[in-house]
Structures are given as C-alpha cells and as structure tokens.
Design a protein around this nucleic acid. Sequence first.
RNA 1: GCGCCCGUAGCUCAAUUGGAUAGAGCAUCUGGCUUCGAACCAGAGGGUCGGGAGUUCGAAUCUCUCCGGGCGCACCA
Length: 611
Amino acid sequence: MQLDPFAGHHGAKILLAQCQARFLNPLMDLPFNIANHLDAALRVAAGKLSLLERGFQPEVRVADPANGDFQANGALAFAKREKQNPRALAQQIVDLLGDLSADFELTLAGPGFINFRLKPDALLRWLQIYDSEQHLQSGAASARRGQTWIVDYSSPNTAKQMHVGHLRSAVIGEALCRLLVFSGAKVIRDNHIGDWGTQFGKLIWAYKRHLDPAALAADPLEEFERLYKFGNHAAEADPAVLTQAQQELVQLQGGDATNLAIWQKINDVSLAAFQVIYDQLGIKFDYTLGESFYNDKVARVYQELTASGLATESQGALVVFHPEHPRFKTQPFLIRKKDGAANYASSDLATALYRSENFQADGVAYVIDFRQSDHMDQLFLTTKKWFEQTRRPLPQLEHVDFGTVLGEDNKPLKTRNGENIRLKDLLHEARERAFQLVSSKNPDFPEAERRAIADVVGVASVQYADLSQNRSSDYVFTWEKMISLEGNTAAYLLYAVARIRSIFRKAGFDPAQPPVSGATAPATAAEIMLARKLVKFSDAVQLATNNLRPHFLSLYLYELAGDYSSFYAADKVIVDDPALRARRLLLCHRTLTVLETGLHLLGLRTDLARM
RNA sequence: GCGCCCGUAGCUCAAUUGGAUAGAGCAUCUGGCUUCGAACCAGAGGGUCGGGAGUUCGAAUCUCUCCGGGCGCACCA
C-alpha cells in the first residue's frame, strides 16, 4: 500500500481513518477487488445468522450504476430455498454490516437486493492506492498464485502462410496468456505447430524437381506454397506422381537425410515468417513443440491405452469408444490409422501426457476453433479416463473455442478470387488504412510519426475487433467498422489515451509523476461516474480471466473510455484551484494507468503520444 | 439420420451465466468547438429477445417443441 507523503490535511484524515478502521476490523481496508471484500463481509454476517452451513452464497456482483456499485443477490435464492421472506432476511444481513457503512451506502431494494454504493472518500482512497500497473497487478496476482497454465494457441501448419483463419487463435490466446499471468499464474505459451503432416510428401516431391531458387530467396514461404500447390495438382493429375510423393513421405518419416534437410529448411523458414506476424501481435512463445516433436512419443500412447483397455482395434485402426456417451459410443476417436501412422489424435494425446509430466500443468487452454469441438471432447474424455487409470493428476482441460471470421457476405472471409486472406496482407492493409486516416486527421504530423501511429492503431484495431466480441460467435470482419475508428474500437480507446497524455504534455507534467497530492474526493457527476468505473477494473479482469473471455475486459475498457470522454467534456482539468486540479489530474492519471494496463492485457500496444 | 453452436433495434454486437426498466456503436434526427484534442460530447426515435408452451418471487439466459442458419460425424489436421 502506498500513501502520498505530501497529502494535505484531507489525506492525513484519511490515513487516520484507515488506521482506525484496520485496527477495528481488517475488512475495512479497501482491497483491489472490492466485490471480494464485500463477499467476505457478507459471509461474516451470514455466519452470525448461521446461514453459511445451510448453503448461503452472497452472490456479489457489479451493479447497474443506477442501483449502486455492487449488489448482493444471495438473500433471494436462499430465502426461496428456505421458504423465508427474502426482504426480511436481507434486512437481517444488512443490520450486521454496520462496519461497511464507513465506505458504502447500503440500501435494500426490491424483493431483497442489497445494494452497495461507494462513498466519494472511499473512491479516492482506492484511487490513491492503485496508482500504477505494478500495483494493479499486485492487487490482482493472488487469484491464481501457484497455478501453472499452458496455453496452446496459434498453431499454424508449416510450409503455408498464416491466413485469417489463424488470427483469432493467436489474438485470443495471447490475451488469455496475459490475463492469466496478471492473476498470478505461471503461463507456458506453446505453439503446437503442424510440422509433420502428409503435405510434406507432395511438397518435397515438388521441391526436388520444380524449385525456383530466385523465388525461394525472395520469399521462401511464398515459394513453398507454390510448390505445394504444384505438387498437389501434379499428384491429382498423375497417379505416378502421387506414388512418388508418397515415397518421399515414407523416406522422410524413415529418416532420409536429404528429405529431413528439406523438411528442416521448410520449418525454419516457416517459423521465421510466423515470427514476423507474431512480432506485430506482441506474441513470443516459450515453446514451439509441434507434431514432429511427439513423433517418437505416440507409441507409448498406443501401448498404455491398449493395455488399459480403453483403445480397441476397429476396421484395422486403433480407436477409443466411450460407451457412456450418446454419440461417442459409436463415433470413434481414431488414435492410429490402419496403415499404422499417427494422426492428430495420437499426437494430441502424447502432448497431454508430455505436458502433465514435464510442466505439471494445473490447466491447459486449447485455443482452437469450434469445429473441432468433437475432437476436443473426445480428447478430454479419453485423457480423463487414461489419467485416472494411471493415477496421474488431471489438469483442468479447457477448449477455448471461437467462431469463424466472416466477410460481409456472411461467408468465411476470402479474397475476391476465393483464396484465404493472408495475415501478412491483412495486417499490412490495416496499417495502411490507419495511415491514411491519421494523415487525414493530422496532416501536419511528420510522416515518420504518422507511420508509427498507424502501426500501433492499425494492428490494435485488428486485435481489438476480435477481442471486443464474444469469441463463441462468428464475427463479420469489415474494414469500415474496424478502421473507421468509431464506437467500440481500439482507436476510441487509444484516442482517450492520447488525450490524457496531451493534457499532461500541455500542462508540462510527467505522466508518470503527476502532481496529485492534495487531491480531494470526486464530487461532480462526471468525476464520480469515472471513479466508480475505475474501481471496477478488477472485476472486469476477473470476469475475463475466469471465463477465458477477453471481451469482458474489452467492454469494460470501452465503458471506461466513454466515462472519461464524458468527464473530459464536462470538467476542465487544468484549473487554478490546486485541490480541484489535483483531483482531476488524479482521475486522468488513474484512467491512463487502467486503460494502458487493460490494453496491454489484451496484447495491444499503447505507445503513442498523440494520434 | 445423430450431435454441437447460433437466432436480441434497419446493420454489427453486449447483457457479469436465473436478477431490477434488455444496453452500446453504426445509420437517421437535434444540439454543442474564440475555452485542456470535435477520431469527441449531450440528447431523440428505433425491440412480440425467431414462434409457441413450461419451470418460479423473477427467463434473452433453464426445459420441451416447432421454424430458420452455421458446423461436425472412420483413417486431413
């Protein structure tokens, strides 16, 4: 906890009040997450009424601002179960919450809602404590301390360009990593690339016969993609080619030095190209353990699953059925093909084992699109039974699924000639469009600065368009909506950031060290609205993290930026009255801090002074 | 055929997982820049939450049933 040593008379009174409060009741301190604080207080009260042993849950949540800051709904469900009068029960609880009245206005509403509204002095205190990204994090980091999470995301196939289909996994996955880190978990970022597929037979066939060295030097991935298509067409047209391609694959898998070298080169080039994309998206993997890595680890899977009786032979293949499941009792989980080769189920099972043994993972989040939910369900079911039989700890397995990126015709987004849009091109166009816009708004900025701003705004817009939406649904991708920069967009949030920086710049203050001592409690309607929003940052983070849904945080940040804009329009910051100015500078600074912290959690850059 | 997901304002999307009068943006209309950045703000209109039935203090959310749309379902990953 930090207190401003230069706080004036008012600050001293607050300090005194805090000390007294802590002496009388430790719950009176204001922690990072106020909802949890209220939850604890309600449990104490419910304990005195002997409600806890009968299953009382406080059910504290953020309230509609019209009703208060937080509300506790637990009395309703409890009274219903116990056939009591909910309002009378809520009143009994409220009567025991006297200590909270120093910081909150408590009211009873409707059939038994308990409403909590933070008093301005309490708002001020919270704002004084949580004054930096570090302090916000230290407040949040207790939630998942000690947990290890593996996030399996992005996972493109090598020898191919990344395209729009790879966008969501990368963007959502990175945001989840950052959210989990923020809440105290150890996070392992694992790029489970597809580097051992059957595409290599045709590709190596074409590489050996039709390689264009100049094209390879200019843009290797482009050339590999051309070669793959060439090989694919040739194999379709001529069975002899297909046979040769299959032969190349057999040689590769048999460890042939030439083919392995080609394969290695393809992977190296692919990973380098991926990294160019990842750099723009702020992604850095801890591990890139693709399918090839598990090549020699699948035999153990076959052996263990067969020995345990989970896997059986069927039509020549090794499969797992789940008799208790309505569908998977007949729909097999195919873990080894009839030709003896591994498939993605084999390597996914081997991966689950490896992660359990080597990383002691408490949780694994698979950021993979919804079309693979059958596969994920079968994988999780099989892993669960397998680990139980072998007495291994089972990590929490989460399929973080997401919908398809659609074009304006409501079909999966493609180029005009029906090809997938490359991520490289998409990000380039985003930056280009942002540059045009920045240039039209601020033609007087130097070009280099306009470029730098466009790089931030353009990429952030693409990321945010994805993260601001519930991942479960498909979403329609339109440049119009994304780059026109109105409404719930990255640009709107970054504009708020730029305007706050502008105030500090114009007033000659260091944004890191604003003169906020002597700040008084928020008082105007806009100030109070903004302060009330700021203290709910932790709830948004918690909601986003617990549900593995970043859009909860996006929505919060958008509302925060909106409240700031209203405040900015209503209340002038740089005024003569020192206490009033300090108060408003404090609000500006904390808004900047929370906005940047939140945007960083989503994986966006915020490094622009103006835009 | 079996199963999963979805259907909310003209359009694009929310709704803290069963809570209070279903909210935003775009578009439309009205007002606000000699005052810290108007990429902004204030306000207005716009809804049988796909239809119907049920569960209960309370349903967009849960159950059933229709109607529409998307996606999976034996050797691609």
